[in-house]
Design a protein around this nucleic acid. Structure first.
Length: 400
DNA sequence: AGTGCCGGGCG
DNA sequence: CGCCCGGCACT
């Protein structure tokens, strides 16, 4: 946290520290005048050590976050550019302290920047690196290589290392830094030619809002989400991948892929297998009923296996139940089926006993009121009659 | 007259 | 056994 802030401050410091701001340096920390004479790298390290020793008991070699925080007491208001301020804001936001991130902080930003500058003065090298990252990202979305150039100009290898140490809260563009940051989860700015990587979403939002969207309007803040992508999701796993509309980036692929995965896909039909299976019988039943009109009664199957209309599908029991089913179903029915519906499909034996029309003749059953194949299909369609009807036998398809 | 179907005959 | 038909009962 603090490290980030300090880093930002250093960054701001550095650019201007290059020439004029040695004073600032000195002002920031009395001890640093000595450092200034020395190389930046050494000065930074030394300065850190001094500051740390002065304020804290942190290891001299590495600037502990706390160290930096303490150091900043100076501010250079006039020299601070908006970008720098923004950068500081972003960095502060990166620090994850809600207070810092809160909007009111912006007003205080100059102060914060100033404070950081002090720290930045200490770590001119690291600060420069931090600054360049900001500068490039903000002022001119130059490609990351330019950033490296800046570093190179400063000639601070230690800067690299230092930043890498602190990068956990800072924004970096180099792959190495990305890899480092990636361990914790990072967000990459998708703004053209920017590609800034921040470890904090809020920071990235601010980065985009300030540097790219160029303002703090609510709308722009909302749009921020569309201009960065999460390149590592360890700490941000809870956050969904933000969709990026206009900018095409490799990151989107992952995003889209993540979106695509949830899609159940066509095999969802398997889930419907049960409904299908349930519905299937009905449909099959329909077909079968149609076939029944064509030809087959179960008995018929046994009776006339050679008949073209015979079917082997229907079990005898089903014949009993089948007619009852349609009664509950509403669908277009053929005549025969209507008959089926009208008649609850009593078995022939039942018909024998129950048939009211004839009580006197036990031998020959009376003619049922039910339509038979002859009536249903007519003489001209005799092929469609049931076998019994064709043979002038008791109709098996429409038993009374 | 038309229908359903038993009884019988034929191959 | 499968197929067909004569013939009767019934509507």
């Amino acid at each position: 946290m603090a490290a980030v802030e300090s880093l930002a401050g250093r960054g701001t410091m550095q650019h201007r520290a290059e020439g004029v701001d040695d004073l600032i340096y000195m002002q920031c920390c009395g001890q640093e005048d000595v450092n200034i004479d020395e190389k930046h790298s050494q000065s930074t390290v030394f300065l850190q050590a001094a500051t740390s020793s002065a304020h804290h008991t942190a290891p001299p070699t590495r600037p502990a976050p706390s160290d930096v925080d303490i150091s900043h007491s100076y501010r250079s208001p006039e020299s601070v550019e908006m970008d720098e301020i923004m950068a500081a804001m972003v960095l502060t936001s990166l620090s994850c302290s809600p207070v810092v991130q809160s909007p009111p902080q912006r007003d205080l930003l100059p102060t914060a920047a100033g404070d950081m500058e002090c720290g930045g003065g200490e770590l001119s090298d690291s600060g420069s690196s931090g600054y360049w990252s900001w500068d490039h990202g903000s002022v001119s979305p130059a490609p990351s290589p330019s950033v490296t150039d800046t570093d190179g100009s400063l000639g601070q290898p230690a800067d690299e290392g230092l930043q890498m140490e602190q990068d956990q809260g800072s924004c970096d563009e180099t792959d190495v830094r990305r890899s480092k940051t990636s361990s914790r989860g990072a967000y990459r700015c998708l703004w053209p030619n920017c590609g800034k990587v921040l470890t904090s979403r809020v920071g990235m939002k601010r980065h985009i809002c300030i540097l790219h969207l160029g303002g703090g309007s609510d709308q722009s803040q909302r749009e921020e989400d569309f201009y960065y992508t999460e390149i590592s999701s360890e700490e941000e796993d809870h956050a969904p991948c933000s969709p990026a509309p206009s900018f095409s980036s490799g990151a989107w692929s992952s995003c889209s892929s993540s979106h695509g995965q949830p899609t159940p896909g066509p095999h969802g039909t398997s889930a419907q297998s049960s409904p299908l299976s349930q519905s299937a019988p009905s449909s099959v039943w329909q077909i079968h009923t149609e076939h029944l009109y064509q030809a087959c009664a179960p008995i018929q199957v046994t009776v006339s296996p050679g008949s073209p209309t015979s079917c082997g599908w229907t079990p005898p029991s089903e014949l009993q139940q089948r007619p009852q089913v349609p009664s509950s179903r509403s669908r277009s029915v053929s005549v025969g089926e209507q008959w089926l519906q009208r008649n609850s499909a009593p078995t022939r034996s039942q018909t024998m006993s129950a048939s009211p029309s004839r009580g006197h003749c036990s031998f020959r059953k009376g003619r049922g009121e039910a339509k038979k194949c002859r009536k249903v299909y007519g003489v001209e369609r005799r092929e469609q009659w049931c076998t019994a009807c064709r043979w002038k036998k008791a109709c098996q398809r429409f038993p009374d």
